[in-house]
Amino acid sequence: MLTRRIALGLAANLMLAAPAFAQTPAPSGRFITVSSTTSTTDSGLFTHLLPIFQAKTGIEVRVVSQGTGQALDTGRRGDADVVFVHARAQELKFVEDGFGVERKAVMYNDFVLIGPKADPAGIKGGKDIVAALKAVQAKRSLFISRGDKSGTHSAELNLWKAAEIDIEKVKGPWYREIGQGMGAALNMASAQNGYVLSDRATWLNFKNRGELDIVVEGDRRLFNQYGVMLVNPAKHPHVKKADGQAFIDWLVSPEGQKAIADYKIGGQSLFFANATQPGA
């Protein structure tokens, strides 16, 4: 392993000689690693939030964006200081199992059902997501599923359940599980003119829309709650407890909540801050 050591040392030296590696490093050199979902990054929310937080505290936030399941795994392994995802039940289990210290509600956004303008299932303009999914299944219209254990994926599965459809049983060629992120799912829906469940933020930021448009929105069952947790320092002693907690505290503070609410695309709010709402 000597060569490894040398190699690593050398690599480290080369990097020291090239300080421009981090293009906007915190002058203090303080940073935390946050594992989060693709939606928070793809929607541009972090690009909006993090500079505000860094300016105030001097803490740089490095975000690794993954599917919710993977993001929680990253926290479990101790490879992140803070986990910021949207799958309430899994989050509570994460804390219960001792991997996280405490879950705090931060904000919600909503899902929208996206589909082709031609609308083969005939559901455009509806407000009832359950009825819409039943129509998609009945007509065997093409549906793109994330199929990647993400928060959006588990939300989709819950909606099928709510529609009393056993998707495992009825799925056929019309139901495509792609095992990729939100953007990839949207790209595929755009290319093949299928239906797809997306978070609104990613949709608003998505540029390759082709024939796609929102077909169903506004159903309460489409609301999507985000929670944040500090990875348990008792399990992983290297976790940056103080700085990680500072980020969490800021997110749920009036100032952080206002920053979240201020993030808009084309005049539309993407995330609705609700840290103070009981039971969220």
């Binding site: 990839a184 790209n187 755009s190 540029k207």
Partner: peptide, 9 residues
């Protein structure tokens, strides 16, 4: 990869 997933082809 990221920009592709954002649809900014």
């Amino acid at each position: 990869a990221l920009e592709t997933s954002k649809g900014d082809l």
